[in-house]
Design a protein around this nucleic acid. Sequence first.
DNA 1: CGGCATCCGGGAAGATACTG
DNA 2: CAGTATCTTCCCGGATGCCG
Lengths: 231, 231
Amino acid sequence: MKSEKITEAATSRRRRYDDACGTAHALDLIGDRWALLVMRELLLGPRRFAELRADLPGISANVLTQRLGELEAIGVVVRQRLPPPAAVQVYALTDWGAECEPILAVLGRWATRSPWHDPTLPLSAVSLLISFRTMFDPARAGDLRATIGFRIGAGSYRVAIAAGTLAAERGNVVGTDAVITAPAPAIAGVVYAGQPLAGLDIAGDAALVARFVTLFPLPAKVGVTVPAAAP
Amino acid sequence: MKSEKITEAATSRRRRYDDACGTAHALDLIGDRWALLVMRELLLGPRRFAELRADLPGISANVLTQRLGELEAIGVVVRQRLPPPAAVQVYALTDWGAECEPILAVLGRWATRSPWHDPTLPLSAVSLLISFRTMFDPARAGDLRATIGFRIGAGSYRVAIAAGTLAAERGNVVGTDAVITAPAPAIAGVVYAGQPLAGLDIAGDAALVARFVTLFPLPAKVGVTVPAAAP
DNA sequence: CGGCATCCGGGAAGATACTG
DNA sequence: CAGTATCTTCCCGGATGCCG
């Protein structure tokens, strides 16, 4: 019964591009609305249904259920039941699913050039951390070596910079050089919209944080050359 | 009047993600059905409406009209009227629009690992040429230096390989070391599905073509570990 | 023929309420 | 908390027709 559903969802989708192009096939697999954003929210580790719903503003429960089922059917997401006592169900990316990160990175970099991109909209913690991976500029970091902890809502994360590389992951903040406690949009406002550092709760090396927030330059906006109608 | 339509289409779309994440904004801009594939068809130069429709199997005229209008409104496509005598209208990518190529490349590479990817489906000439850019393996090319011409339907293209780089563009085939005349799916079948070279019409250096078709290895398929239902 | 508007049917997405 | 059921909205796709 379940296997029928798997093959049905994976192979005989109603609306598909009949195209050998890999791009078209990718869109057949993960081109549905919300699909890529669900995968984004799983990039830093397994999540529960309610967490996903809370961090995907505007998704409805039935659509989330449907997307998770389809992503599971194509082998991008697996459903895991944690062992007792915490016998809750979580969703995780498969290895192949996790390989979607370059897709998110390239899409994000392309879109930050858009004249309509608004970095002050709501933002999930995972989005922020992944954006650090995407937008990190090794040249600006130079030989900086530091770790910074983040407390965002109920979650904690750590970012390590060393030898021109950046690692961002879920984890506790003990032993980091500085700890930032703030909502994700507030941090994004400082890093990506030039808002003052004063809005953040910073513990530890404040000078380090002041430098950290300069390591993620946005590409130049495309000129507002939207073709106007000829008079 | 036109400007109203522009701001309407670009800023007040009905169904949008309220998310500062760059990926989400990219999907707001070019996440609609067919949008990326329309951009793909323009990557090798301006095209006319009927050409686009012919190379996007299954798109309907009104959807193509709508997509082109939206892509124009956001500044990704421009409409050009060629000067007389060939006073026809063509659609072209803007500079920003052309920067979508890494998106197509990354999506395509990710999807070729799919167990359901079928390289024998229909394929447009542009898709094939762009796939050469995406899948080219410099290590396999070594110090090969060659040019190959393609006659696909009514169009002609040329691929130049030198110093471990590949260039693929529209252009005539004169002066190339070999010329392949065949439909795009037939060429794709040889390069990506291991079909015999015999099916292609080859003029010039046949040994070069035999090597050329080995320069585009596909990544390993993901194991068929689609989670089965527990018995 | 090229491009666009309009109408219609089907189906996916969105919102809300409800259940184990 | 983790979904399911139901209803509405609206996008996609196909057909037709208008107009240059």
